[in-house]
């Protein structure tokens, strides 16, 4: 491999840096990977309101496909999108998302031991049935100590060291969910956080847990840090083997490079419907 090529391949692992907010310190981060964000002037948009954004990226049509929304016109480098409900995204492969893997090695003794702690904690709180996303988030948030010293670790190592950033929160959440029989997966995307009237977008990773046939976000890294976190997932960690770092490069075309927050979106009629989720789409006021 030529030296300049190897430089980049070696640093594919560094790409995984892109995927994390500095848990609770997003406002003070000087990261190279903060996503430039333009905020509208004037009064802010209530967190409950749908928010219209322009997403600048290399292949907007590819992201539109992932998010199951109409593609922009050919040649556009922007995708207009309304952030409101958590979107359902399609992975490229069909799988059960319940199997152990190199990254999600939930059969390892360190993970099973933590799983027993989790089960005990739930039993003591009177919980019954399979764990909910809330159960998982609370437990993992209490177990892991935030640290930017880690890359993406495998679940058994996370269970042992109990350290990490958003990626490790996500991997451990997925491992504990699968260990309890609940399908789960690691997703990558961005989060949009509001600071008064201004917004900041950051790369992030979190878990999705399958509940009643719907993928639900389970983010143990950003729990009560902000009144409202708007999520935009754009990819699933498909390759949970040793090639996970190379797999992350698959997301490059849909990586959002700049976010323009345009303002509140209204529910004018008629509402375009998503064929997959049935979630109403909103049009600009």
């Amino acid at each position: 491999m030529s030296i300049v090529t190897r430089r980049a391949v070696v640093h594919l692992r560094a790409l995984l840096l892109v995927f994390c907010v500095a848990f609770g310190h997003a406002a003070s981060g000087q990261s190279l990977f903060v996503i430039p964000t333009d905020s509208p002037t004037g009064p802010g948009v209530a967190d409950e309101q749908p928010l219209l954004v322009s997403l600048h990226l290399r292949e907007p049509a590819a992201l539109a496909k992932v998010l199951d929304v109409p593609a922009p016109v050919a040649g556009a480098d922007v995708l207009r999108y309304v952030m409101q409900d958590y979107p359902a995204i399609s992975p490229g492969t069909k799988r059960a998302w319940s199997e152990p893997s190199f990254v999600v090695d939930y059969l390892d003794p360190s993970v099973t031991a933590l799983g027993r702690e989790f089960a005990t904690a739930r039993a003591e709180s009177g919980a019954v049935g399979p764990p909910t996303p809330g159960d998982l988030v609370r437990f993992v948030h209490g177990v892991i100590r935030g640290s930017r010293d880690r890359g993406l670790d495998v679940a058994s190592e996370i269970a042992a060291i109990r350290l990490g950033d958003c990626k490790n929160y996500a991997v451990l959440t997925v491992a504990l969910a699968r260990a309890a029989g609940v399908p789960a997966r690691v997703v990558f995307g961005i989060v949009l956080l509001r600071f008064d009237t201004r917004y900041g977008a950051y790369g992030h990773a979190w878990a999705e847990v399958l509940v009643d046939g719907r993928w639900v976000a389970a983010d143990a890294a950003l729990t009560a840090e902000h009144a409202r976190v708007r999520y935009l997932p754009f990819g699933v960690l498909e390759n949970e083997g040793m090639g996970y770092a190379l797999d992350a490069a698959r997301l490059t075309p849909v990586w959002v490079q700049r976010v323009e927050v345009l303002g509140a979106a209204s529910t004018g009629s008629p509402l375009p419907q998503s064929p997959r989720t049935g979630v109403p789409r909103f049009v600009l006021r």
């Binding site: 430089r7 560094a14 290399r58 490059t252 490079q257």
Partner: peptide
């Protein structure tokens, strides 16, 4: 060599 990785462009220059 230039490679796009997520939102950033990585360049290695001899």
């Amino acid at each position: 060599g230039t490679m796009e990785m997520g939102p950033v462009k990585v360049t290695a220059t001899r």
